[in-house]
Design a protein around this nucleic acid. Structure first.
Length: 499
RNA sequence: GGCCCUAUCGUCUAUCGGCUAGGACAGCGGCUUUUCAAGCCGUUAAGAGGGGUUCGACUCCCCUUAGGGCUACCA
């Protein structure tokens, strides 16, 4: 297969859907793996559903996710720009092209004008449904005489162009790269509208025309397109064009196995980015939803580069895959753990995860880069996503702790023992220089030595005084993050409470 | 209703006729331990049902069942 060209062709009706991202990814991987070209085309043929700014956000997210096309629509100065010699890549700019090909179809009797009103079509459908028949256009306009057509057109009647499906065509058979042979009989194919009355093409026409003109060799798209593929094949036949290969990839599913949708969780890629899922984790996770390296491999963590090397349509699953947030969380945590603290800090900073109210309302000493990096050092192993930063350790950001005095006592220990422990801690800690303090190992060793055998007697009161929390990282870690001054202040506060 | 697709642990999946059915997430248990995580170790859990084909079927074929998708002048 020489000169492979694939495309991702979303419509700008909102944000990039996580399922769309997966489709884009498979296209991208397939292209890169095979030395082909990955094209981004915008399918904005439905004026009613167009959302302002959707193209920009679509392209931006693709870029963020490192799925940069070789050709098609890009962003330049925040505005959509197009690159490539097969453009334009935005369908609303190709209207005359569709018109030209539609006329060719009309001339060959492969398409015909239909003047039926939406109301009469709806009535027809209602009747067919009531009679338990499959709703299908009855071709009544196909038999219009040239005179009648001319009269209606002269009268300014609105019309659409329909595909003239020849029932005698019999089975339309094609070989899907992931599903194998698929067969649908022409009698089950509706006379699909190709051109709408507003002069815009429908998906079916625009898609086939563009894929041909843009020399697309492999159409990799969601399974929801499987039933309409025969219509597209009929169009290729009508034009006498070479057929591309088809690969229909399995749907992404909600936990209840229905098609992944809003309502049952987040579906836009930006939602996940906003929650602090790393793009590498998202790509990795989504790649494994419907594909695996096969060959008995048990590898789970893949870089984009590794995915490119390993990807093969042969190993794409046929059945839909449930989007399991728990596994995403695990994978994201894996990626967070692999980051250096500086990179983690940068990721948190650039994603705006250090500006949350919890942190913004904290004392300024708890907002310095040094402080936050110490926090991240401690929290790195405990984070599923960046938006979780600080949430389980809020004591790092409050000016004044609040807890019951009894909370300082380890198990059944008396407050006298607790006080002794905290006094001892104060003595040791106040003797440390700042340099010693910020050597995490030194701090830990000094405190561990002081704790001796019965660690709980010493460490629990200290940890309780420093955090006031039932759960927290170790007292060494907490003290290390807080710094000497704040730690000693909290220790003094505890001693005051103990009287 | 019609057409099409699909079917291995709860979830993602391996297996491409020889299986004591493997891995991962989640769950559970343990170790570690000052609490909570992390980490390490262990463990529960699957071939929808029925017919064929075959020396031998999770793997191939058929039927049933179940789930899903499509059925628009939306993509």
């Amino acid at each position: 297969m020489s000169h492979i060209r694939v495309r991702f062709a979303p419509s700008p009706t909102g944000y990039l859907h996580i399922g769309g991202l997966r489709t884009a990814l498979y296209n991208y991987l397939f292209a890169k793996k095979n030395g082909g070209k990955f094209i981004l085309r915008i399918e904005d043929t439905d004026q009613k559903r167009f959302v302002t700014g959707a193209i920009e956000s679509l392209v931006r997210v693709m870029e963020t996710m490192s799925l940069v096309p070789d050709e098609g629509v890009f962003l330049g100065g925040g505005k959509p720009i197009q690159k490539g010699d097969k453009g334009p890549y935005i369908q609303s700019e190709r209207l005359d092209l569709y018109k030209k090909y539609a006329e060719e179809l009309l001339a060959n009797r492969k398409a015909y004008r239909c003047f039926c009103s939406p109301e009469s079509l709806e009535a027809l459908r209602a009747e067919q449904t009531a009679n338990k028949q499959a709703p299908r256009y009855d071709k009544r306009c196909f038999t219009l005489t040239p005179d009648e057509i001319e009269r209606k057109m002269a009268a300014g009647e609105q019309y659409v162009l329909r595909l003239n499906v020849d029932i005698a065509r019999g089975d339309v058979i094609f070989n899907d790269l992931v599903r194998g042979e698929v067969k649908i009989n022409a009698k089950d194919i509706d006379d699909q509208v190709l051109m709408k009355s507003d002069g815009f093409p429908t998906y079916h026409l625009a898609n086939v025309v563009d894929d041909h003109l843009m020399e697309i060799t492999h159409i990799i798209r969601g399974e929801e397109w499987l039933p309409s593929t025969p219509k597209h094949i009929l169009l290729y036949e009508a034009f006498g064009w070479e057929m591309p290969e088809f690969a229909h990839i399995p749907l992404l599913l909600n936990p209840d196995k229905s098609k992944l949708s809003k309502r049952q969780g987040d579906v836009s890629v930006e939602d996940y980015l906003k929650k602090g899922y790393l793009k590498e984790a998202l790509i990795n996770f989504i790649a494994l939803l419907g594909w695996n390296p096969g060959q008995g491999s048990t590898q789970e963590i893949f870089s984009l580069e590794e995915l490119i090397q390993t990807f093969d349509l042969k190993n794409v699953h046929k059945a839909g895959a449930v989007f399991d947030l728990q596994k995403l969380n695990w994978m994201n945590a894996e990626y967070i753990k692999k980051l250096s603290v500086d990179d983690l800090y940068l990721a948190a900073l650039s994603g705006n995860f250090l500006k949350k109210p919890l942190i913004k309302n904290a004392p300024s000493t708890a907002q310095t880069p040094e402080y936050l990096k110490r926090l991240l050092t401690i929290e790195q192993n405990r984070l599923a996503k960046l938006s979780d930063i600080g949430d389980n350790n809020q004591f790092f950001f409050v000016a004044q702790l609040s807890y019951d005095t009894d909370f300082l006592n380890w198990k059944q220990n008396s407050s006298v023992m607790t006080k002794e422990a905290i006094v001892k801690a104060r003595e040791i800690l106040s003797g440390l220089t700042d340099t010693e303090w910020f050597q995490k190992e030194t701090l830990e060793k000094v405190l561990l030595d002081a704790a001796g055998e019965k660690r709980g007697d010493f460490l629990w009161p200290l940890r309780a005084a420093l955090t006031g929390a039932e759960k927290s990282p170790s007292p060494f870690d907490v003290a290390w993050v807080l710094g000497k001054e704040e730690s000693l202040k909290r220790i003094e506060d505890a001693l005051k409470m103990l009287g």
